[in-house]
Amino acid sequence: MHADVQSFAVAHLLRRPAARRVGGFVAGFDPATTSPYVNYATPVPGAEPTDAEVADLITAFRTRGLTPRLEFAPDAAPQVEPALRRAGFRTEAVHDYLVCTPATLTVPTASAEPGASPEPGGPRGRVRVEAPVSEDDYVAIDTALAEAFGGEWAPSPEGAARLRRTEEGGGAVRFVRAEDGSCAGGALCSAPAEGTAELAGVGTLPAYRGRGIAAAVTANLAGTLFARGARTVWLEYSGEGSRRVYERVGFRPGGTRLYLTHEG
């Protein structure tokens, strides 16, 4: 599975507006933002980069005023981490990832169909998952996810536009409405590549947590991508609580991803 996830990472970054190949790496640049979570690089599976290639990669980031940063599954390219360490890259994070298949997907009882699943103010077991249809929906989702993740990024027109591009580019964005018509929680899933797709950004506003929203949205997105031909869907989790949510809907241990940055 490591090779599938790493092959996906390469294909996904090549979709960036200013993607660039540097030796055995692909750097996914987006001129619309300086966010390190959007602008990063990854190695091709099996890459064996030279020190010169790593130096070129660092330069590609620096000339754009960006911090050199990589995300990758180290087991898919064992020679990459040592080369990056020699150049001064340091660990930002290590995340485990989980994988779901059509055979393991377990849809919450009230969401047996993608799109129907506990309305935030309603009785337990009645979530309704929706796809965004208006610009207001995309803005509401971007705003809610920014708050759900503790303000790690600010909501913005660019953020809403990226959500729209995900939905219109073969991926999917799903959310649950709050009582006032805004977003109580949501997530997104990339378009498939190399037979798999990444599910990310699962977030619920604090006032709506514990109502099954994350599980409903996650199951809905996985089911949607399976219906579009993906063989697997994978995601990273941030703690044991979220891991239990994902495991309840059919995600199983897949491997580890490494995040490295260069601050020099």
Score class of each variant (00 low, 15 high):
Gln6Met: 05
Val139Phe: 02
Leu258Asn: 02
Arg90Ser: 14
Ala83Asp: 05
Val99Pro: 00
Arg257Met: 03
Glu81Trp: 08
Arg165Cys: 02
Ala73Asn: 09
Asn39His: 05
Leu258His: 02
Asp96Leu: 06
Ala197Lys: 07
Leu98Cys: 04
Val38Ser: 07
Leu57Arg: 04
Pro253Ile: 08
Glu53Asp: 14
Ala52Met: 12
Pro31Gln: 11
Val173Ser: 07
Arg228Asn: 11
Ala144Pro: 03
Pro155Gly: 13
Thr261Val: 15
Phe25Glu: 01
Asp75Met: 07
Pro82Gly: 09
Phe226Leu: 10
Phe8Gly: 00
Glu147Trp: 09
Arg16Thr: 03
Pro157Thr: 10
Glu81Ile: 03
Glu167Lys: 08
Gly195Pro: 00
Thr91Tyr: 05
Glu81Thr: 03
Gly28Trp: 00
His262Phe: 09
Ala76Lys: 01
Ala148Lys: 00
Arg85Phe: 06
Gly46Tyr: 14
Thr33Ala: 06
Ala207Cys: 12
Val233Asn: 04
Leu188Ile: 05
Ser35Glu: 13
Val139Met: 00
Ala161Thr: 02
His262Ile: 03
Pro68Ser: 04
Asp180Ser: 12
Ser134Ala: 15
Gly185Phe: 02
Thr256Gln: 10
Ala112Arg: 15
Gly181Asn: 11
Pro17Met: 04
Glu168Thr: 12
Glu263Phe: 11
Glu130Asn: 14
Arg244Phe: 09
Ala161Lys: 05
Pro49Cys: 14
Glu198Cys: 01
Ala52Gly: 11
Pro43Leu: 03
Leu105Arg: 07
Ala27Tyr: 00
Arg248Met: 10
Thr67Arg: 13
Val10Arg: 00
Gly23Cys: 04
Thr59Leu: 13
Tyr37Gln: 13
Gly185Met: 10
Arg15Leu: 01
Arg20Asp: 03
Val129Ile: 02
Val139Thr: 09
Asp4Glu: 14
Thr204Val: 15
Thr33Cys: 07
Thr59Ala: 15
Thr104Pro: 06
Glu179Lys: 07
Leu14Arg: 14
Thr101Pro: 03
Thr224Lys: 07
Gly170Ile: 07
Gly210Pro: 08
Pro253Asp: 06
Arg248Ser: 15
Ala112Ser: 14
Leu84Gly: 09
Ala103Leu: 08
Ala112Trp: 11
Ser238Asp: 13
Arg16Pro: 01
Val80Asp: 00
Val22Gly: 01
Arg126Gly: 13
Gly201Glu: 08
Arg211Phe: 07
Asp56Val: 01
Pro49Gly: 00
Ala83Lys: 04
Glu147Asn: 12
Leu57Gln: 04
Pro157Glu: 10
Ala55Tyr: 02
Ala60Tyr: 00
Glu194Val: 15
Ala222Trp: 01
Pro157Ile: 13
Gly115Glu: 15
Arg252His: 13
Phe251Asn: 01
Glu113Asp: 15
Pro123Ile: 12
Asp96Glu: 14
Ala222Asn: 05
Ala103Phe: 11
Ala41Phe: 02
Glu168Ile: 09
